[in-house]
Computed example of a mutant assay.
Amino acid sequence: MTSGQLHGEYKVPGGKLVAVDLEVADERLARVSVSGDFFLDPDEALDLIDAALVGLPVASGVADLARTIDTALPPNVAMVGFDSRAVGTAVRRALGLSSGWGDHAFTYLDPGPLPPAMHAALDEVLGRELAEGRRGPTFRFWEWQDPAVVIGSFQSLRNEVDAEAAERYGVSVIRRVSGGGAMFMEAGNCITFSLVVPASLVDGMSYEASYAFLDQWVIDALAAVGVQATYAGLNDIASPAGKIAGAAQKRFVGGSVLHHVTMAYDIDADKMMQVLRIGREKLSDKGTKSANKRVDPVRSQTHLPREQVMATFLDVFRSRYQVVDGELTADELGQAAELVRTKFGNPEWTARVP
């Protein structure tokens, strides 16, 4: 089986553009040509990269493609602004096995205020609906009226939450499907959003790379409201004043990725320290030392109302990607309500790691 010429591109975050033109013959790569605005020395290395890719199975993953390129290159080769994995990603995009932001239209959902458990359930429903081909990629903010602690899928309930303090303040405890740490959330005092994307969008990326890739627009959105932020560690977004946000992911069988982010707008630090057993470490991580202060990196650095910050975030997202407004279906809401009953509102799930 022979194909016409296929073209794929990949822009390295913070780096250069890599383009690949290729053909396919008998389920193998043929006539491969790599190009881009990267830097490569010596010049002859480009021919070695092209030659290394010819003959590889079209089903080769990014890691396999990168490993083949690295093996073919002598140790003195300098690749600046790109690497072998970037070439592999461009190859996969040419084959239609990896995708870019521009290949997808995102549905913006605005269901209004919901109980925290319902938001956690919707994350799972939308992730599974995309994985099973019944729903495209989505973007939505969380809005709720009740305070909550949302703990990571693998955290110990008793180690994270002071049950008596939570009950005293009317704070519910929800265990989400993604990993990561506990989040203390109050209505109107934090900004949380969920992004559900096809796994093809982060094809071949390490977990660390996928976090930074999916949050690059957030860095730009923060800049638009006056915050100079950068990605830090595996899943944190930091500013000169300290940590400003944390992200978490869940990958669903079938090919979808749930990526959600929470940032503190104006949290009651004293209450958070009483409800979270690791409150002092949380505050220190955010650059706040005193329990009499509020954890407010977004409010204090932007001096903008929370609603205006969120509106700017949405404007930036719309300006970068294809976005259409949509609604949750009755079936999706029904699935989420059932998950609240059987899972996210069920004490057995919440305490599954005591």
Rank of each mutant, 00 (worst) to 15 (best):
H7N: 06
K11N: 03
V12N: 09
G15L: 08
V20L: 09
D21P: 01
R31N: 14
V32A: 07
S35L: 04
D37P: 14
D37R: 12
D37C: 11
A45Y: 06
V58W: 07
G61R: 12
A66E: 04
T68S: 14
T68N: 05
D70H: 06
N76Y: 13
N76Q: 15
M79I: 07
M79R: 05
G88E: 03
R93V: 10
A94W: 02
L95Y: 08
G102H: 12
D103N: 12
F106T: 00
Y108G: 03
L109H: 04
P111F: 10
G112S: 08
P113D: 08
L114N: 00
L114Q: 13
A117N: 01
V125Y: 03
L126S: 00
A131N: 03
A131R: 04
E132C: 05
E132P: 01
F141G: 04
F141C: 01
D146P: 00
P147R: 00
P147T: 01
V149A: 06
Q155P: 02
S156A: 09
R158F: 13
V161K: 03
S172E: 13
I174M: 05
R175C: 05
S178D: 08
G180N: 01
G180H: 02
G180D: 03
A187H: 11
A187G: 13
G188I: 10
N189W: 01
L195S: 12
S200R: 15
V202D: 02
D203V: 02
G204E: 01
Y211T: 01
A212H: 14
F213Q: 03
D215L: 09
V218K: 06
V218I: 15
V218N: 02
I219S: 06
V225I: 11
P240Y: 10
A241Y: 02
G242P: 07
R251E: 08
G255Q: 05
V257T: 14
L258P: 00
V261I: 13
M263C: 14
M263W: 04
Y265H: 06
A269T: 06
V275T: 07
G279P: 08
K282I: 10
K282P: 00
S290K: 10
A291S: 14
K293S: 15
R294P: 02
D296R: 15
P297S: 02
H303P: 00
P305I: 07
P305G: 10
R306T: 01
V309L: 05
D315M: 02
R320W: 06
V324P: 02
G334N: 09
T342L: 01
T342S: 05
G345K: 01
N346W: 07
P347A: 02
A351L: 10
V353Q: 10
